[in-house]
Every structure is written in C-alpha cells, then in structure tokens.
C-alpha cells in the first residue's frame, strides 16, 4: 500500500500530474475500500492490535529457516534479538525480507505479507530483545519540518550514497544504495535508526527526531517537486546530459545538415567565380 501511494507522489513532478493524481486517487479509494472490506488486515503496523504470538508462528513458517527458530541467527543470517520492530517493518514492508537467497544484497520487491502480518512479526521480535520501535505518525510527520535543515543534513550525511536527487548510487563490490523514490516516511525513519544492509545507523543521539523529520521532509518534498527545466533525465546529472548532447543534439543537427547539403536533383547551372 505504502509503495503505491509514494510512487504516485513521486510522479507528481510530471506535467500530466493532474490526471495521474485523479487516477491515483481512484486507485487509492478502491484499495482503501478493499482493505476496509477485508477486515482485520486494515490495521496499521505498530498498533496495539499486533499479536506477538501470531507473529511467532508466521516467523517460524517464513523466517526461521535462516534466522533460527528463536531468531537467534544462523550461519545464513544474523540474529534478530535486539534488532527491534523498526528493522522488521523496514525489511518486510519494502519486500526485502523474506530474502530470495541468503548472502546477496536485498533490494526492494513486491511485499508478500499483509501489514497486519508484518506488525505481528515485528511485535514478536520487539518482545525478544527490544530495539528501535516503529515510529508513530507524529515522528514521521513532515508538517512544519525545516526543509533547509533537512537539505544541510541530507547533503552531508545521505547524498554521498543516495545522490543529491535521491536516485541512489553504487557502492563497493556490486552493492548499491537504493533510490529513495519509493520509500515511505516511515521506511526512511526506520532505515536511519536501524541501518539496514550496508547503511550506517543514524540514531537519535546523532540525528535528533526533529532532524529526522527535517530529512524526511526534504526527501519527500524533493522527489515530488516538479522539474522546472523539462524532463529530469533521471536526475542522474552530467553523464546523461553529455549523452543527450551527443546523441540528440549532434544527431539531430547532423540529420538537418544532410538535408541542407544533400545533392539537388534539379538542373545544375555552371558558372565561374573570381
């Protein structure tokens, strides 16, 4: 659900945003109706309705093969004791967990668990050894957040991996920092406090909750912002600009030059210059 909403937000910078917004609104309304009609699955993650016992049985079915029956970790995967509900919610709500195969870098993929199931597992893991909890709505609220401070913190602590435009970037040995286009505010928050994969941890001691809101506001505002200069070219910078200059710029002009100088079919009249 979160995935769909934010991807619509991300496209708001497109000129056809109005139509997309209407279409998105319809889809959202339909999805909400479906979720409500579906009953208990509508519960938001982190709410008190989460059932650790149900989470444990789900965990044993889907996670214990790698993480161990008591989440104590195996040679395949780390211990989750003390990882906290935030880590579970981040990994599962972005589809990274359950992983396709152990060892490889996990990337965002379609979510296979319902929000309620994720909340249940998160609640169980939280009950094992504490750890970062799932942020509530006020913690990730961007209203009144200082986007200028967000820019300062983002460019100093995040852009080196995720790119100034949030489009992601390469790390060592084939790993990569993901694009932030699809990340919900909650996921951004969870990523900061849990440090998934190669990402370092930015706990509340180093980046305060208000600063986190500023960063989230900066990210969400930047990605939904229109591109005033035309198509964004993926916001990847000069590399694409150079390719466009050569292929589109020079390519087009060479075609025109060929038209301009093509041999004429009509009769040639000879003459002599000076």
């Amino acid at each position: 659900m979160g995935y769909r909403v934010s991807s619509i937000i991300a496209r708001r910078r497109h000129p056809a945003a109005g139509y997309a917004a209407i279409a998105g609104g319809l889809v959202l309304a339909g999805a909400l109706y479906g979720a409500l009609a579906g009953g208990p699955a509508s519960a938001a993650p982190g709410q008190s309705s989460a059932s650790p016992a149900n989470g444990r049985s789900l965990f044993i079915q889907s996670c214990a093969t790698c993480h161990g029956i008591n989440a104590q970790g195996t040679s395949q995967a780390p211990s989750l004791i003390g990882a906290g509900a935030a880590a579970v919610d981040f990994q599962m709500s972005t589809g990274r967990m359950p992983a396709k195969e152990p060892g490889a870098e996990n990337t965002r993929k379609p979510v296979t668990f319902s929000p309620q199931q994720i909340a249940d597992i998160a609640a169980w893991i939280q009950s094992l050894g504490g750890g970062p909890t799932i942020p509530d709505a006020t913690q990730v609220s961007t209203s009144g957040a200082d986007t200028a401070l967000g820019e300062e913190l983002f460019s100093t602590n995040c852009a080196q991996c995720h790119n100034a435009g949030g489009s992601g970037g390469a790390l060592t040995y084939g790993k990569s920092a993901p694009s932030l286009v699809a990340s919900t505010p909650t996921q951004i928050y969870e990523a900061m406090v849990t440090g998934p994969e190669a990402m370092p941890v930015f706990g509340d001691g180093t980046i305060t909750p208000d600063e986190k809101r500023a960063i989230i506001a900066y990210i969400t505002q930047t990605r939904t912002e229109a591109n005033p200069g035309g198509f964004s070219l993926g916001r990847t910078g000069t590399v694409t600009e150079g390719i466009v200059a050569w292929l589109a710029g020079l390519g087009f002009l060479v075609l025109i030059a060929m038209w301009l100088t093509a041999k004429r079919k009509d009769m040639r009249i000879g003459g002599e210059g000076s």
């Binding site: 100093t156 852009a159 100034a164 435009g165 390469a170 910078g237 600009e241 150079g242 390719i243």
Partner: peptide, 14 residues
Amino acid sequence: YTPLAISSASQPDW
C-alpha cells in the same frame, strides 16, 4: 556548496 557535503555520481560536464 559546503565543503563537507557530496553527492554520489558527482561528475563534471562531458
């Protein structure tokens, strides 16, 4: 510009 910030994929013009 601030001297301690940087973005990934920092490239010059072609």
